[in-house]
Amino acid sequence: MADLSVKIAGVEFKNPVIPASGVFGYGREYEELFPLSKLGGIATKGTTITKRNGNPSPRIAETPSGMLNSVGLQNPGIDKFISEELPNLMTKDTVILANIAGSTADECVEIAKKLDETDVHMIELNISCPNVKQGGMAFGATCDGAAGITKRVRQVTKKPLVVKLSPNVTSIAEIAKSVEAEGADALSLINTVLGMRIDINTKRPILKNNMGGMSGPAVLPIAVRMVWQTANAVNIPIIGMGGISSGEDAVEMMMAGASAVQVGAAIFTDPYAPIKIIDGINDYLDSNNIKSVSEIIGSVQPW
């Protein structure tokens, strides 16, 4: 058994595997299948200041080796999250990353202020949701936008701040640098890749929102590339995600430079995916005589 623990922005994770924001709710449903304490951490559903219903259905479509979603940040609002979900999550012996997604900078600041007064371990600031008209990806699309919102949220919280980046940009490394310069403690990437599918019989997009965010195995190479480019550009740790569905995928992402990984779509295919990924990482380390998972972080030897 190798040492699977990692440290990100001063926070200890017992292992580097975290269900991604939006696929895991607040853990209640998956707790029927396995204890949440097995997980390195949990990234909770993106929270806005007040309740949001999200976009009309259909909100999901299958794509070759992947999927599109257009949920649009359905959530009960920050006050309910803090009163009804967070206290329960904090008893689960795992790191809790509260994902926040305001539609304006003011809203993100308000949410972050409220979270600053809780016991939550980390804040994951989502500046990359492709499924909302305001905020979301628009914040993360330019260096100025990303820097501006990071700066404002940084001012109101002492919690370790992870900024979640969008892949739908020309240079993710430039965005990452501007976020780092404004005090982000870590980065997480990638959020979903903007995509679309059309039913050729009805000529209608499958998603009612027309477009949606693509994730799942098909995006893994894009995500590995972006994590690698970002890791080469910044000095803060990175949580890598996008298409990870096995221990091998996680190892690859960590070699590209990620200190931990998040798992999204793979959980729909196999609800035990996070557990199997933890075991898979351990198997890789054991069979290669590597004592600690932290040894593989950024260990790719590029040509």
Binding site: E29, Y30, V71, Q74
Partner: peptide, 16 residues
């Protein structure tokens, strides 16, 4: 009926 992801109430894709 609605298109589904998780099937157990966590991902919120199957809204009606």
């Amino acid at each position: 009926e609605e298109r589904m992801g998780c099937g157990i109430g966590a991902c919120l894709v199957c809204a009606c």
